[in-house]
Write a protein that binds this DNA or RNA. Structure first.
Lengths: 341, 341
DNA sequence: TTGAAAGCGCTACCAC
DNA sequence: GTGGTAGCGCTTTCAA
């Protein structure tokens, strides 16, 4: 393991000069540049990033903490984050909070101690994290979910608009008995989807029956159990809007267990689009969130944020970036069964 | 941002003493311990992990590089890695090589420069990475896939045994015309599954027809196209063994496009088990790899490896840990269609 | 039991 | 253009 000193010595220059060459800073006689480069090569020199970070007070590392790596939505976002971060010369320290607020806090502390330059966070609860790091005025960008009273930086999907469009699609097909399976209603991803749904129904003059509003928790099992309740109603819905990928999976299983034809008897519109959604039978109509874009934009926002921490500039940047989703109509939605209704 | 010096000053002790207290090393008068702890608390002191790393020459960080975050198999492994690493006081720097060998190299270089204590790697090609880091005698543990001539440390699934068992299951059901859709055949995950398949067939005295061996590339699309070829055969197979999750998805789509009943006309047995597999209709019979376990074991092996780099000890540790997979029989496999064969 | 001081490898200031 | 050197925040040795 060689150091800059070794390189300098071998090249017959000072460490200062060697450093300048390797960082392409200041100007150095071409001849010396050659010698340094050569020496670096010969010694298989790899600059010690740790030492550099200590000196420069920046690690070129960002932390990301998500509630569940296993959820394809987040991995899709991570993919965007990873590629953009690498492009900008940053590495990623990855943390899974496991949907556990206290673990989330621990992770945030750890990232802070490691002096990451900033953090990307999909929070598990409305408040905790937020005051925590941003209290210390630490570069922090939220993504996917924010609390209703949120005041920091974030990039999210236009959940309300997306849910609205999705519901309009169902209404346009002729459905009047439309149910929803929601997630938790403490953060924007749960709240806004329900809100968009409500708005579309209301505009169409359709009532939202109490029993058509099933509250799940974004987990597979809840999709299944909510679906069961819906199917057992004396007047079951002809269409179901399901607020995330995992619950949609549970819902589809319930349908097939009960032998309820989709879209024959009931149309299904799911939130989140993934490989399996497009290859299910029936191929699922879904709302596709701009996951890759969300990841990239979040990184870019964070980097701007980091920069302006060092040299405060124009702070008229929009704080919450809202990305549009896309409705992908496939085979799981159709006109309602004409035998009744 | 306070430093240890600030804490020491406030507590009225030297930095040496403060350091000892905070690291619970050496012995310090209880009174002073109190004062230091108190000061640390008051200043909201968070030790600078970067400085510590520079001094101690260890970062308590491990790097992980995988070919595709988007593949649920890898995210399942990551989950195990993440939790075990955290448990042991290590953080994770995450890299996606995107199935690109040159990006994989770049990532490895970067991790090296960041002085991670060790690396977990699911390689994209047989050789490149291996010589690279281990040439420098760097703690490195492979997982999921290794090259046939591999000589380093690794934890993998017993692919051969798993494929053998899976094929036996098909044979036991009465199938004689069994096809396989393989992945790339350059690494163990592709090679051994084919080998296990072959072995089972051979033992049962069943021939492996040329046209029943379809070579895919572990991507969804190849599963689809291979399936198409299989279905168009004049004598199509009655069962298909599909070597990973993504390709199985493509295969199932092909089946439903062609209106081929599963398991009525053709049984399907997939490698890799996930949420969607269990909730498909039909519910898919699959080989479930011990993903969580693989992640945990890989971390533990790496940590032992790191330790023995510092203080060489008993080197009679087994170098390749082979984990058993589990066959999960569900509804996509059944006795062959009796109308023929 | 305590603290002064060396030094991890690097960057950047400043004098030459 | 070049190089000597201070110092980033910490751990650890060693003398008191």
């Amino acid at each position: 393991m060689h150091t800059l000193r070794d390189v300098a010595r071998l090249a017959g220059v000072s460490v200062a000069t060697a450093s300048k060459v390797l960082n392409k800073k200041g100007s150095v006689r071409p001849k010396l540049v050659q010698r340094v480069l050569r020496a670096s090569e010969d010694l298989d020199y790899h600059p010690d990033h740790v030492a550099r970070s200590l000196k420069t007070r920046q690690t070129n590392t960002i932390g990301i903490v998500i509630p569940d790596v296993t959820n394809p939505f987040f991995t899709a976002v991570i993919r965007g984050v990873e590629s953009e971060a690498r492009l900008q010369g940053y590495s990623l320290i990855f943390c899974d909070s496991n949907e556990d607020p206290s673990l989330e806090r621990t992770n945030l502390e750890m990232l802070f101690s490691r002096r990451v330059d900033g953090v990307l966070l999909a929070p598990t609860e409305p408040n905790a994290a937020q005051d925590h790091l941003s209290r210390r005025r630490f570069p922090l960008v939220f993504f996917d979910r924010i609390s209703p009273s949120f005041s920091g930086f974030a990039v999210v999907t236009d959940n309300l608009g997306a849910a609205y469009d999705a519901t309009r699609h169902l209404i346009g097909l002729g459905h009047e008995r439309i149910a929803i399976i929601t997630g938790q209603l403490n953060l924007s991803n749960g709240l806004d989807r329900l809100e968009g749904f409500r708005k579309a129904l209301q505009q169409a003059g359709l009532p939202l029956r109490e029993e058509y509003l099933q509250r799940g928790d974004f987990q597979l099992e809840s999709g299944h159990s909510c679906a069961l309740k819906l199917l057992q109603l004396t007047v079951p819905p002809t269409a179901i809007f399901c607020c995330n990928n995992q619950m949609t999976l549970g819902l589809m299983r319930a349908l097939s267990e009960f032998g309820v034809a989709c879209p024959g008897r009931v149309s299904v519109l799911g939130f989140d689009d993934f490989d399996w959604a497009a290859n299910f039978s029936p191929r699922l109509t879904t709302v596709a969130q701009p996951t890759l874009e969300m990841g990239k934009q979040a990184v870019q926002m964070l980097l701007r944020n980091i920069k302006s921490f060092k040299e405060p500039v124009n702070s008229d940047e929009k704080k919450v970036l809202v990305l549009r989703a896309e409705l992908r109509v496939r085979d799981s939605t159709a006109a309602p069964y004409s035998g009744q209704a």
